[in-house]
C-alpha cells in the first residue's frame, strides 16, 4: 500500500514537470514581453513582469512586423478556407452516402489516396501555375483549394453514415423538396457537431501554415501572422529582445484565447481523428 503511494507521488511529480514544460516557455515569453532589453540581457529568466510593455511596442512597430495586418489577413484566409472546406466536404460526403452512383467507390478510394499524398510534392508546380495566371499576391490560392479537403470529406462521410436516416431524405422528397434544398435545410443542420469540430481544426491549421503563404505573398499588406512572426528574425530586431518577445506574445495570444474557450472540443476532436483507422 505504501509502495503504491510513493509510486503515485512520483507519477504526479512527473505529470507536473511535463505540465511545467508546456507552460514555462509561454510564461517566460509573456513576462519578457514586459521587460526592457537591458533587463533581459542582465537576466534572461524572470517571472516578475516589468514596465516596458509600451516601450517594447514602440520598438516592435518600427520594422515590418504588424500584428493587426497579420491578424486581419490570417483571419480572412482561414475563415474563407474553413467555410469552403466544411461546406463542400459535407456536400461531397452527402453525395457519397446518400446516392448510388457508378463511380462512388472508386471516387472514395481516390479521396483516401489523396489523403496520403504529402503536400510538398505539388508546391513548385502550384507556385508556377499561380504565377502564370497572376494569382500570386492573392488570397485565392490559399482559400479556394480548401474545397477539396480529403480528410474532412472522410470525417463527414463517417459522421453521415452514423447519423443520416435516408427515410428523412425520402420524406423531404415526398414533401417536394429539391435535392440541393434537402442538403442545405435538413442535412447540414444534422451535421452541426461534425461541422464545428472540423471547423476548429481547419481554422487553426490554415492560420498556422507558413510555407505556401510565404512563397506566394510578397506584398507586405498581404502578409499573414506566421509570415509576420518570421520577420522577428530580421536584423532590425536583432538587438531588441524585449520587442521580439512582445511580437511573439502577440502572435500566440489569439491561439491561447481560442484554446482557452474550445480546448474540450479540440481534444475530443483529436481523439476522433485518431480512431478513424
Amino acid at each position: 500500500m505504501k509502495k503504491f503511494k510513493i509510486g503515485k507521488f512520483f507519477l504526479y511529480l512527473f505529470l507536473i514537470v511535463l505540465s511545467l514544460l508546456s507552460v514555462l516557455p509561454f510564461l517566460i515569453m509573456f513576462v519578457n514581453a514586459t521587460r526592457s532589453t537591458p533587463e533581459i540581457q542582465q537576466q534572461a529568466l524572470s517571472f516578475i513582469p516589468s514596465t516596458y510593455l509600451v516601450n517594447n511596442w514602440r520598438h516592435l512597430m518600427v520594422g515590418a512586423f504588424n500584428p493587426f495586418v497579420g491578424f486581419q489577413n490570417s483571419f480572412i484566409i482561414s475563415a474563407g478556407a474553413t467555410i469552403l472546406a466544411v461546406y463542400f466536404s459535407s456536400l461531397t460526403a452527402y453525395g457519397i452516402v446518400a446516392y448510388d452512383w457508378k463511380f462512388k467507390n472508386a471516387f472514395f478510394s481516390l479521396i483516401m489516396t489523396i489523403l496520403m499524398i504529402p503536400g510538398t510534392i505539388a508546391i513548385i508546380g502550384f507556385f508556377q501555375f499561380m504565377w502564370q495566371i497572376g494569382l500570386n499576391n492573392s488570397f485565392i490560392p490559399l482559400i479556394v483549394p480548401a474545397i477539396a479537403s480529403p480528410g474532412v470529406v472522410f470525417f463527414m462521410r463517417q459522421y453521415l453514415q452514423a447519423t443520416l436516416s435516408l427515410e428523412m431524405v425520402e420524406a423531404a422528397r415526398i414533401d417536394g423538396s429539391g435535392e440541393f434544398a434537402t442538403f442545405n435545410k435538413i442535412v447540414l443542420p444534422i451535421m452541426k457537431p461534425a461541422l464545428a469540430t472540423q471547423a476548429i481544426f481547419i481554422m487553426v491549421g490554415t492560420w498556422n501554415q507558413l510555407f505556401l503563404p510565404l512563397v506566394l505573398l510578397s506584398r507586405q499588406q498581404l502578409w499573414t501572422m506566421p509570415i509576420m512572426v518570421a520577420q522577428l528574425q530580421g536584423n532590425i530586431y536583432r538587438t531588441e529582445f524585449g520587442a521580439v518577445w512582445l511580437g511573439l506574445a502577440l502572435t500566440v495570444l489569439p491561439l491561447f484565447v481560442v484554446y482557452a474557450l474550445l480546448s474540450k472540443y479540440i481534444i475530443a476532436g483529436v481523439a476522433l481523428g485518431g480512431v478513424k483507422e
Binding site: L210, V229, V270
Partner: peptide, 22 residues
C-alpha cells in the same frame, strides 16, 4: 493534464520556432 500536454500543438509552429530560438 491532457489540456496542458496538447497545448503546444495548437500554437503556430513559426511562433514556436522563434520562441525556442529566443
Amino acid at each position: 493534464f491532457k489540456t496542458l500536454f496538447y497545448m503546444p500543438n495548437i500554437i503556430t509552429a513559426a511562433s514556436i520556432a522563434i520562441l525556442f530560438g529566443a
